[in-house]
Design a protein around this nucleic acid. Sequence first.
RNA 1: GGAGAGAUGGCAGAGUGGUCGAAUGCGCCGGUUUGCUAAAUCGGUGUACUCUUUAAAUGGGGUACCGAGGGUUCGAAUCCCUCUCUCUCCGCCA
Length: 464
Amino acid sequence: MQGLSHQQDPLPSRVRRGAGLRAFSRRGAPTRPLSAGEPSMLDIKFIRQNPEQVREACRRKRIHVDLDKVLALDAVCRESKTSFDSLKGEQNRRSKELGKVAPTERAAALDGLKQLSQDVKQAEAQLSEAEASLRTLLLLVPNVLDPLVPEGRDDSENKELKRVGSPREFGFKPRDHVELGVGLDILDIERATRIAGSRTYYLKNEGVLLEMAVLRFALERMMDKGFTPMSVPHLVRSEAMEGTAYLPGGEEQAYRTQGDDMWLIGTSEVPVTAYRMGEILNHAELPLKMAGISPCYRREAGTYGKDTRGLYRIHQFQKVEQVIVCRADEGESKRWHEVILANAEELLQAMELPYRVVDVCDGDLGRPQVRKFDIETWMPSRNGYGETHSASRFHEYQARRLELRYRDEEGKVRYCHTLNNTVIASPRILIPLLENHQQEDGSVVIPLALRPFMGGRERITPRG
RNA sequence: GGAGAGAUGGCAGAGUGGUCGAAUGCGCCGGUUUGCUAAAUCGGUGUACUCUUUAAAUGGGGUACCGAGGGUUCGAAUCCCUCUCUCUCCGCCA
């Protein structure tokens, strides 16, 4: 067993008090200058030196950012910084001398300094204004892509990497999960709509057990692999949302609280990845392997009419999420990407579900990802594969925003790399689980791997 | 929700207007000493931005940062305001 529980370093007091978060202003408004170690996303130096690569990322991800403006602002920032530095330097020098000046010459010296003080204030204001505008833009600049990312307009052009298992041939007319769930009295969507609106559900009876079983099963498997299970805050501050790159940009997809300015997480990726934000880790602590479990809340704005039936697209669900924080090593980062993908596949295989893996194309890739693999599980009712898992690699994009760093063997401070993947998300996973394992009589056979977590039950049968 | 106390470097902890990036101790790194280890002793030890040197590593200069933001002042860790967080007591609560 490896992980945090065995290395409970006391939190540095500076960090505990939020000093490391200074980069992020309260309310998410960029008020502080970049010069104090501000995170952006991509290193401004990288953008400065590789503008074409960044431009290409914008084009391929279909994200519009005025890169020329970024570069221009960067130049303004540096000029302002230089002039502020020299003015402030002069002020410091002369102020220091003033203490030793003879009383008779004091008045004259003071006069000159008063003027200088005004100049310094002006230069400072100019600098912070430039830095604030730059930072606002910088937060929107997308991460560059892995050269292997396929080209494509949207998810229909994702590249299939492999298929595992084959869709079952039913000797009867299969029911969809809603029909099955209602018949088994483990699901009620109709009444949920009355109580809580669209895209909601009640699970009942063995439906509740089944959900808890897949979550528990997932957690156990992850713990076996050395992941530290984490029960996390479901309400977080905008710093964490911004740090994991859900903000700015994702405002419409997340629920925001009234009055306290907190956000309901859309995934435990947010609090788990942000767990050590603002800290400089010891290289010996890495990699951090964490498995978060939490409910997830999503507004699903703009999806009206899409996936309206059943448990596929809903406002609230439960998820176990695997998160890796590793050293800034491209190769290692890529290896972890494979590992977390394999972890999820292993669970699907254990649950005897057919699936395929796709390499998400550039047009379907989000701002922060370098590369993403989705797992799509066979859903008979869709007569196709439906996304159940998403494995992302971020390079240092999130770490930079989170100020999540480590000190390497040479004592050099570097940004970590972060990755994450679904382990299991319910009730979406109940769709293939119910549909693939259904029997002609409307009952559902519970796969062997889940039975220990179902009190030994082998099958869910219509009650009566 | 009410009352109070507090926030300084990896940690502990000084510092109430200039000589403070910050004493001292611990930790850590390096040297000396030393059968080994330990002890002793000497030196070093933050982060970031920027300018400059360099092919680069690095070196040198400047600036910022003492919870965050703002204010007073020629000059703020130090004075004032606002906020955040932590702790204690009371209330409430699962």
